[in-house]
């Protein structure tokens, strides 16, 4: 029975992204990166040094950045287009829709510093809307890794998959998750902990918090199932059927509570099994504050998620 734990120490998952893409590029000359003056923020300094010709910096110009990605795919390359997630999705959304998703080019969009990682810089630099913007673009596979290992696996998988992918990466420090016999499977929710009383469904930087919340709940005699829903497109409906069978669900994401993971789960349960769903995340534009403060302020913590679980159970 899967029972995930968080190892000691915190990691910036961009390091895993950077070392993985460098290794992949060394083995496959088709791989290139396209950036909007984002070499540093994408941790691509080493890549640029190793592969200067394959580091295509278009300047601060996101529309042409994504269009160039599509064109490179037309020319037989495997482009990883890497920029702050707020800009690669919001600023270039029509290019993401038309040139990548609709055209179906083999482009990997890499959203860096997603969610509220840019904390104090404010709502312009938060990327909490990207899930809602990309979910209807069902031709794009959306993956939100939870830790360094999953980040590396997601990058490796994206390189071999023929088709559009959005990797939603984070710079928020997270622990490495210890999961017995861990296997990366796109489109399949990862069971971090079994439980029959309710299901907590998380992704990305909130998975370790959901795992910790389940520990707290266990101390109170509540057995929570914890799912890592790393793939948002396509959603693992089999896992959702099983989660809904517990009778209550809490969703947790570093994103808007509208239209993202919580929205997807609410759509699913409304159609298949109406049950209480508590959606944890962010409400919209938020006041100035650090990422940690914003997490705490909106209950994105082990006690906050445990409290939401109790609310969901009370509504059952």
């Amino acid at each position: 029975m899967a029972h995930a734990t968080a190892k000691a120490g915190l990691f910036d998952c961009r390091e895993a992204w950077a070392s993985t893409i460098e290794a992949l590029a060394a083995a496959d000359e088709r791989i290139v990166v396209v950036v909007n003056d984002s070499v540093g923020s994408s941790k691509l300094g080493g890549f640029q040094k190793a592969f200067p010709d394959r580091t295509i910096n278009v300047g601060i110009a996101e529309q042409v950045m994504v269009g160039v990605g599509a064109g490179l795919a037309n020319g037989g390359r495997i482009p990883f287009v890497s920029a702050a997630s707020c800009f690669i999705t919001g600023r270039a959304l029509e290019q993401v829709k038309a040139d990548v998703a609709y055209a179906g080019f083999n482009v990997k969009l890499v959203g860096q510093s997603s969610g509220v990682a840019y904390g104090e810089l404010g709502a312009t630099h938060h990327s909490i809307e990207d899930f809602a913007w990309l979910r209807p673009l069902t031709d794009i596979i959306v993956i939100t890794p939870s830790d360094p290992w999953e980040t590396a696996e997601a990058v490796k998988w994206a390189a071999t998959h023929e088709g559009p992918v959005y990797l939603r990466l984070s710079r928020m420090p997270v622990p490495a998750l210890e999961v017995p016999d861990r296997v990366f499977r796109v489109g399949k929710a990862e069971v971090m902990r079994e439980g029959r009383d309710l299901a907590i469904i998380a992704c990305g930087t909130t998975v370790h918090l959901a795992v910790a919340a389940a520990e707290l709940l266990a101390q109170d005699g509540v057995a929570a199932r914890v799912l890592n829903m790393a793939t948002l497109n396509p959603l693992d409906e089999e896992a959702l059927h099983a989660a809904a069978a517990t009778g209550a669900i809490v969703t947790v994401e570093e994103a808007s509570v509208r239209g993202g993971l919580g929205g997807a789960v609410a759509e699913f349960t409304a159609s298949h099994r109406p049950i209480p769903v508590e959606r944890m995340g962010f409400p919209g534009f938020m006041p100035t504050g650090s990422a940690d403060w914003l997490f705490a302020e909106h209950g994105l913590s082990a006690p906050g998620i445990a409290a939401a679980a109790m609310r969901a159970l009370a509504r059952r």
Binding site: G67, G69, A70, G71, L72, N74, G75, Q95, A98
Partner: peptide, 25 residues
Amino acid sequence: VETNTGPLGHGFPVAVGVAIAGKLS
């Protein structure tokens, strides 16, 4: 058909990407 077009201002950036790919190769 080399790429999907319709919304204006899309084909030219994609063409730039194709040309970069050609130059790289």
